[in-house]
Amino acid sequence: MAKPDANKKESEIAIEVLQMNKWYGEFHVLKNINLTVKRGERIVICGPSGSGKSTMIRCMNRLEEHQQGHIYVDGIELTNDLKNIDAIRREVGMVFQHFNLFPHLTVLENCTLAPIWVRKTPKREAEEIAMKYLERVKIPEQALKYPGQLSGGQQQRVAIARSLCMNPRIMLFDEPTSALDPEMISEVLDTMIDLASTGMTMLCVTHEMGFARKVADRVIFMDGGEIIEENKPEEFFTNPQSERTKLFLSQILGH
């Protein structure tokens, strides 16, 4: 386990995906994915609908299982070993397109649930931490409401706070703004930009190109289950290499 070079590797590489393949039955969704994410790096993933973006980031906390290749998160390999999966899920937070808050719990309870039950944090302390993050996403006054009483943007910010309460080292975002009305998108993006400024490792599936330009260290373009192109945002937008990327960019930026 404790090989010296492995330790060193862990310190600077957050996620490493090696020749990963995944099938849904006969359907080859992810084809030979190779990706290295350094600690503190912020990556935006984009691509047409059905290209496998969600599937790829969901593989990184084992919401989906891959069939070939290797995924290392925080130096731990994702296998069928439940202990590894639990260890990784404790370090990786995820924010979903449809928020997935627990409607029967208050905002505060949503935030303290995992720290109390997974990290065994005492309730009082968990509540303090939760309030800290709710303040950070600027909705401490909603703590005692139920998710159903909040607007979409507020719900998504609660979802971000809920993930942060577990004090993760890596955050995954799957189209966090695409279920929101336009006027709520920016409040969520602001929260994410703020989070990026703390040095959090972030993988974000989004079509918000402004956000990509502003915070991404790298933009990855996927199509047909493959990573077609990856580049610095400036390069990616001004000088796309492949035809498919050009087509995609012209479609989403064109109007």
Binding site: M94, F96, A114, M166
Partner: peptide, 29 residues
């Protein structure tokens, strides 16, 4: 919705915790 299970999984809750704290209270209601 499947998202309830996924959110619980992503947070690292165990099967029985997920059922007891998240799924059953809603399903029973």
């Amino acid at each position: 919705p499947k998202g309830q299970f996924e959110a619980a999984d992503a947070m690292g809750l165990k099967y029985w915790q997920t059922m007891r704290l998240i799924i059953l209270p809603q399903a029973l209601k």
